[in-house]
């Protein structure tokens, strides 16, 4: 095999592209530019961390099945942890979002990071909604029968039925978490590739 033949292999090309764009020292940096010294940067990390806790507590609920937490005190406590980690998750994410907005953090080729962030926000809302209607208690009855009208009004109710408990539980514990985790991966890798956005330039001739 000649070297050019090796160079043309799919594997070689994938490796070169991946590690060319994202060498290990960018993926796992040991220094940061000195402007990265504000509390606002905590909220991206807090969002990921709370997602970890959300998924972990969700996995415990999954081990014992959807009816468990209604009858077990331990189960109810795990459900409380699931709820409160979700509240922390959304709280952090919303501050993260508006923080990035006021930093105009899409500058310098970071628009895709911003867009994947917005898609994450929307997917998180869908995940939470499917979770609320999967509780199998009074809240899920009320929320599903109320929210169905908006979904039906858009025509989507024909395919996404909030009153179909099995469908909602599947979306909540399989499809949406899968999408969220993949998207968070893309989002964070994009941040690592581009590096953290530098402060807004005030001295350059202000041309828009």
């Amino acid at each position: 095999m000649s070297t050019s033949e090796i160079d043309r292999q799919w594997t070689t090309r994938l490796r070169k592209r991946t590690f060319g764009k994202l060498p290990p020292e960018k993926m796992l940096p040991d220094t940061q530019p000195s402007y990265v010294s504000s509390w606002i940067y905590v909220f991206g990390v807090a969002t990921i961390s709370s997602l970890v806790v959300v998924i972990a507590t969700g996995c415990v609920l999954a081990i014992f099945g959807p009816a468990w937490w209604h009858t077990s005190n331990v189960g109810h406590f795990v459900n409380s942890m699931h709820l409160w980690s979700v509240e922390i998750f959304f709280f952090s994410m919303v501050i993260h979002l508006w923080g990035k907005y006021f930093m105009a953090a899409w500058r310098g080729g970071r628009a895709l990071t911003w867009i994947t962030g917005m898609v994450l926000f929307l997917c998180s809302i869908v995940t939470a909604l499917t979770g609320y209607v999967s509780q199998s208690n009074f809240d899920s009855q009320w929320i599903s029968t109320q929210a169905k009208d908006a979904i039906n009004g858009s025509g989507g109710g024909a395919f996404f039925n909030l009153l179909n408990g099995g469908q909602m539980l599947m979306w909540h514990i399989v499809l949406m978490p899968l999408i969220l985790v993949l998207l968070v991966g893309v989002h964070v890798v994009l941040v690592r590739i581009k590096g953290v956005v530098p402060p807004i330039e005030e001295n350059a001739g202000a041309v828009q």
Binding site: P29, P33, V36, V42, G109, G195, E201, A204, A206, Q208
Partner: peptide, 26 residues
Amino acid sequence: FRPDVDAPEWKGGHSPYDIIKEGSIA
């Protein structure tokens, strides 16, 4: 240079940063 679209290149300093430690603490 468009200040709402482009980002300046950072020529300033860097400080140590332990991403794994920060993540674990978080």
